[in-house]
Amino acid sequence: MKLEAKGLKKDYTRAGKSGSVFEAVKPLDFALKSGELVEITGRSGSGKSTLLSMMAGMLVPTGGSICIDDMDIYAMEEEERSKLRNGRIGLIPQGNTALLSLTVLENVMLPFVLYHKEPPPEDRAKELLMKVGLFDMKDERPNALSGGELRRMAVARALLMKPAVLLADEPTAGLDDANVELVMELLRSAADEGASVLLVTHENEARKYADRVFNMAGGRLCSN
């Protein structure tokens, strides 16, 4: 599946001086092919998360378009776009994204139950938890997990629906080297199985898994 951004930009109106806008993402063109893993690095505040949110169909751009297989996702209805994200885009947002009332296993299965009446794929969820090294904690509440464990849980959850596009915002933040390796291996093998993977990270380690690396600075995307 091909993910393509054309003239994509995002302005935020800044509080304080009325009418002043801040260009978080300056107009950019960018394409992500199936089977490739692209890494974006950049300083804090450079617009990486903003770009990723727009790619995921979560944040309406100020200008330009994002197409998945030549379909403009922001031309779709919100409902259709959400279903597309549920079925085909695995998103790993920054920070903690667990539902506190559910167990770790249930959190991982959650994307499935949103639009399916059938019982969730417990075996697949357990297998993914095994891969991220959290199988023993499957019945714990998220409160019992460390920050790094929550990140790995989010990775497992994003992979549940076998997404064609995987968008990961600092999935390795707060992980030790062994776990960084583990998560990177997972993302790489997702790409090898045909997914388009976009990864935002500060990790130098990641470079060796990436097909292409971009740097983001002041809302501009430059190829390295």
Binding site: E78, S82, L84, R85, G95, T97, L100, L114
Partner: peptide, 18 residues
């Protein structure tokens, strides 16, 4: 208190109606 949870649900693809 739970707005992050709802944002996460949205990230998983829950639409407004869900």
């Amino acid at each position: 208190e739970r707005k992050r949870e709802f944002a996460s649900l949205s990230a998983m693809g829950a639409d407004r109606k869900v």
